[in-house]
Design a protein around this nucleic acid. Structure first.
Length: 420
RNA sequence: GGAGGGAUCGCAUAGUGGUCGAGUGCGGCGGUUUCGAAAACCGCUAUAGAGAAUUUUCUUUAUCGUGAGUUCGAAUCUCACUCCCUCCGCCA
C-alpha cells in the first residue's frame, strides 16, 4: 500500500512509475475519490459531534424531546455513514491497485529484454566434450527422478535422491553457517499463510495470485517464498531503532503454480511447483534500504563465488519488476547446457510498501516510522544444484563436488550409477 | 472433532446500557525534597485520521480482539469471525 499523503503531494510521480511498470491506474480518479471521501468524512464527523453533545446533555435521563432529536440525528448520520462507507471501500480498492514506485536508478523498460547487466564474474568453462544437461546428468547419477514424480504428483515435480539430497542439505548448511556468522536470525516459518496476510503483503494484487496454491477448505495460501511468512512476523510490532537492522535467514519449501509458464523450461527441475529455498529478509530504517540492498546482493554474489560458478548481475527494468518491488537485482548463473546465464537469485527492496498495511514500525526518537523491508535469495535449491551439476561435470559423466561443499557431504565426487 | 472459559491504556486488573471524556495498582517520564541517592509526595502517561491556524497549538472524530447489528445512547446487549486458555477425543 502506498502513502496517500505522498500521492496527494506528487500524483505525477505515481502516474509515471505505474506506467513504467505497465500497471493501468487512473490517478486522477483516485484523487477525486479521496476528495469525496474527505468531504463525506467531515460531514459524518460533524454529525457524530452533534450526537455526542446531545447524548451527554441527557445525563442519563433523556426527555422525550431529546429522544426525538436523537432519532433525527441518527437518521441523518446513517445516511451519511452509508455513503462514506461505499466511498471508503472504493478508495481502498483503488489505492491497493497502485504499485510501489520504482527507484530513480531503475531503468524504464518494457520487459526482461531491457534488464541491465551490471557486472559479470568468472569465465564460463570450456569443455573438451559436449556437456550434458542437468537432467541427463541427474538421471545417470541417480539423484533426479522426474519420471516417477510425474506419475505420483504430475508435471513439474521431482524426486531428489542420494547425493542430490546431500547437495541440497550442504547448500542449506553453508548458507545458514555463513549468514548466522553475519548476525542473521535463523527461522523455520510456516508455509501456509492466511488470505488477509497475503492481501496485505500485496501478493494478491495485479493478478499475481494466479501463481499461488490455495487451500480452499481453510482459506489458506501456500507460500511461494518464505518471505511471505517471515515479513509478517513484524505485523503490528514496533521495534526500537537499536534493534535495526533486524535480519532473518529462513528455510522453507516454496510452492508455485507456474500458471502461464506452460512450455517454458519443461525439461528437468529448473522450473518446478515445489522447491526448497534459503531466504534472507531484512528490516531496516527508513532510507537505509539502498545500502541494505547492496549488502544482500553482495551476500548473494558471495554464495556463487564460494561455489566458483560464473554469474552475472542484472538490475531488473521497470517493465519486468513486480508490484511490490522498488528495485530488484537478479543473479544469473552460467548454465553450460543452455550456453547462457539463468536466474538463480533475486533480491528486492519493497521499501515501506508492506509495512503500511501490516503496521510494522520502529521508534526513532519519539517518532514512529514504517520499517523498510528487503528480501533476497541465498540458495533456491534446485537451480544451484543444476549449476553445480552442469559446471562441474567431467568427461566420464561424474560430477566433482565444489570444494566448499565437500566437508558437508564427505566425498569429492558423484559417480554415475546408471549407464548413460 | 466435542464441551467450557476468556481477549479492557506498556503490564496487571476494575468496570453487566447513560456523570466511562475508561477507575486503580505497577512500570515509565517530569517535578518537590536531598550534598547525592532511595523513599515519600505532586503532576503527566496511547495510537490514527480530518479541519483550522501555523511553528507549535486549538477543535473534532475513531479506537476496550475484528466486523456487523440493536439503541436517543454500547467496553457493557445480539450475531459472525479471529486469537488465547482448560478439559475430552484423535494424532507425528
Amino acid at each position: 500500500m502506498i502513502d496517500i499523503k505522498l500521492l496527494r503531494e506528487n500524483p505525477k510521480h505515481f502516474e509515471k512509475s505505474s506506467k513504467a511498470k505497465h500497471v493501468a491506474v487512473d490517478i486522477a480518479h483516485v484523487l477525486e475519490i479521496d476528495k469525496e471521501f474527505r468531504k463525506l468524512s467531515q460531514a459524518v464527523q460533524a454529525l457524530r459531534a452533534e450526537r455526542n453533545m446531545l447524548v451527554s446533555a441527557m445525563k442519563g435521563k433523556p426527555t422525550p424531546e431529546q429522544i426525538e432529536k436523537g432519532k433525527d440525528v441518527k437518521e441523518r448520520l446513517e445516511k451519511e455513514e452509508h455513503a462514506l462507507t461505499s466511498v471508503e471501500e472504493e478508495l481502498q480498492r483503488e489505492l491497493a491497485k497502485i504499485p510501489n514506485p520504482i527507484k530513480p536508478d531503475v531503468k524504464v523498460g518494457k520487459d526482461e529484454s531491457e534488464n541491465e547487466v551490471l557486472k559479470t564474474v568468472g569465465k564460463p568453462k570450456k569443455f573438451d566434450f559436449t556437456p550434458k544437461d542437468h537432467l541427463a546428468l541427474g538421471e545417470s547419477l541417480d539423484i533426479i527422478d522426474t519420471t516417477t514424480a510425474a506419475e505420483v504428483s504430475g508435471a513439474r515435480f521431482t524426486y531428489l535422491k542420494n547425493e542430490g539430497v546431500l547437495l541440497e542439505f550442504a547448500l542449506k548448511q553453508l548458507a545458514f553457517d555463513t549468514l548466522i556468522k553475519e548476525g542473521f536470525i535463523p527461522v523455520l516459518p510456516p508455509v501456509l499463510v492466511r488470505k488477509d496476510i497475503m492481501d496485505e503483503l500485496g501478493y494478491t494484487a495485479m493478478g499475481e495470485d494466479e501463481n499461488i496454491y490455495k487451500v480452499a477448505q481453510d482459506d489458506l495460501y501456500l507460500v511461494g517464498t518464505s518471505e511471505q511468512s517471515i515479513v509478517p512476523m513484524m505485523k503490528n510490532k514496533t521495534l526500537t531503532k537499536e534493534e535495526l537492522p533486524k535480519r532473518y535467514v529462513g528455510f522453507s519449501t516454496c510452492f508455485r503454480r507456474e500458471a502461464g509458464s506452460y512450455g517454458k523450461d519443461t525439461k528437468g527441475i529448473f522450473r518446478v511447483h515445489q522447491f526448497d529455498k534459503v531466504e534472507m529478509v531484512s528490516f531496516v530504517e527508513q532510507g537505509k534500504d539502498d545500502k541494505e540492498h547492496e549488502y544482500l546482493l553482495s551476500l548473494e554474489e558471495k554464495f556463487f563465488q564460494l561455489l566458483d560458478i560464473p554469474y552475472h548481475v542484472l538490475r531488473i527494468c521497470s517493465g519486468d519488476l513486480g508490484f511490490n518491488a522498488a528495485r530488484k537485482y537478479d543473479i544469473e548463473a552460467w548454465m553450460p547446457s543452455q550456453n547462457t546465464y539463468r536466474e538463480v537469485t533475486s533480491t528486492s527492496t519493497v521499501t515501506d510498501f508492506q509495512s503500511r498495511g501490516l503496521n510494522m514500525r520502529y521508534l526513532d526518537g519519539d517518532e514512529k516510522k514504517f520499517l523498510n523491508v528487503l528480501n533476497g535469495t541465498a540458495y533456491s535449491m534446485n537451480r544451484p544444484i543444476i549449476a553445480i551439476l552442469e559446471n562441474y561435470q567431467q568427461a566420464d559423466g561424474s560430477v566433482i563436488i565444489p570444494k566448499i561443499l565437500q566437508k558437508y557431504i564427505g566425498k569429492e565426487k558423484i559417480s554415475p550409477k546408471k549407464k548413460s
